[in-house]
Design a binder for these strands. Sequence first.
DNA 1: CCATCTATGTGACCGAAGTCACTGACAATG
DNA 2: CATTGTCAGTGACTTCGGTCACATAGATGG
Lengths: 210, 210
Amino acid sequence: MTIEQLQTHIPYLEKELLQQIEQHGVFKTLPPQTYLLREGSHVNMLPLVLSGRVKVLSTTEERDLLLYYIEEGQSCIMSFAAAIENHQSRVEALTETETELLLLPVNQLQQWLNRYPSIHRFMYKLYNQRYLELVERVNHLIFWKMEDRLLKYLHEQARLLQSRELPLTHQQIAQDLGSVREVISRVLKKLEAEGKISQRRHLICLLEEN
Amino acid sequence: MTIEQLQTHIPYLEKELLQQIEQHGVFKTLPPQTYLLREGSHVNMLPLVLSGRVKVLSTTEERDLLLYYIEEGQSCIMSFAAAIENHQSRVEALTETETELLLLPVNQLQQWLNRYPSIHRFMYKLYNQRYLELVERVNHLIFWKMEDRLLKYLHEQARLLQSRELPLTHQQIAQDLGSVREVISRVLKKLEAEGKISQRRHLICLLEEN
DNA sequence: CCATCTATGTGACCGAAGTCACTGACAATG
DNA sequence: CATTGTCAGTGACTTCGGTCACATAGATGG
């Protein structure tokens, strides 16, 4: 079950590595809103998401900051970095949906890194994706207005949820965008007036493509 | 000459790899303000900075965006990504000072990646550093005022230049921070009034530690 | 059904930063 | 030295987004 899922998402993993993973990996299913990593904790398992979604936040002095979502077939670069550089976690990670995970023991991982090049391919790809996502975000923070950032956010949520009906509160959105509730309410009203969304308590519906 | 410098900065590289690098790497010295990579160009050499400094920009629709400086003993993650994923460059890179470079042929690099684990250690470390830098930047964009972002920028420049005297124009600073000249002028005046800096044409002096 | 809690709506206000228009200072060059 | 171009200073204005205060609506649970 688990290994087949993995192979689908990351087809280039060596057969032997897959066996190793099957042998040493720990399969786990977590309910929504469960922390799998807290700030400051030691990382001894690298998570690999088989199904579901994990949200990763950076906890700064100011406020929490959304970093990325770990989707099916992905892992967590911040956990990986903490693992191989052997420092504590700078981030927290929690499930957003029920999530099936494969947890890879870090000491095993260290050995695999020397034997199976495909892991590097996997991690580089992921690092690069995450980096480019952040670059885009910086770009939008500098050049875009809240209305556009919000719209983009909603469409991204729609992609993640595979639905145009988004069960979000204004407060949550504000946190993810680094803004405040009143502003999000105001801008959502504007989008509603423009016919781009409709909303009711706990739910926002996207009315337009893209 | 070149290899000794390299060993100083990255002591954990395998002896054999160093020999390979010496054999296949191309040593090059570039004057300031020279492009070593343009957007859209194909990457067939991975640059390694031995001395000097290279500025890397993302060229978006809106405006250019400062990504990072490649310093002594560092390489370029965006070039690396383009090389191993075999796509064109999404960024441009140009020297800020006279710069000594070691250019590693990408086809050789591919082989080295399978033989010498130390390269991975090097690249992961760099990727992680760049990622954390961007996270910090997002944080500051969201939570900090221009005055504080500007001060931080000036101190970073002081570190890079090894001097409190920064030969910068307001226009350059504005570009790096994603703002406009007038705003930077205004805020610099304020900092000057507060006794934190002094300035004259083409030069800003930091008057305080940190 | 009433009390409470959470989510949302909204108006008034404020401050930060971007825009525009113009001025003046300085440097370089013929 | 006169012209030109770059750099910096500045006031007036606008806009966006954050803050505050308060209202209302819907859900929830005893």
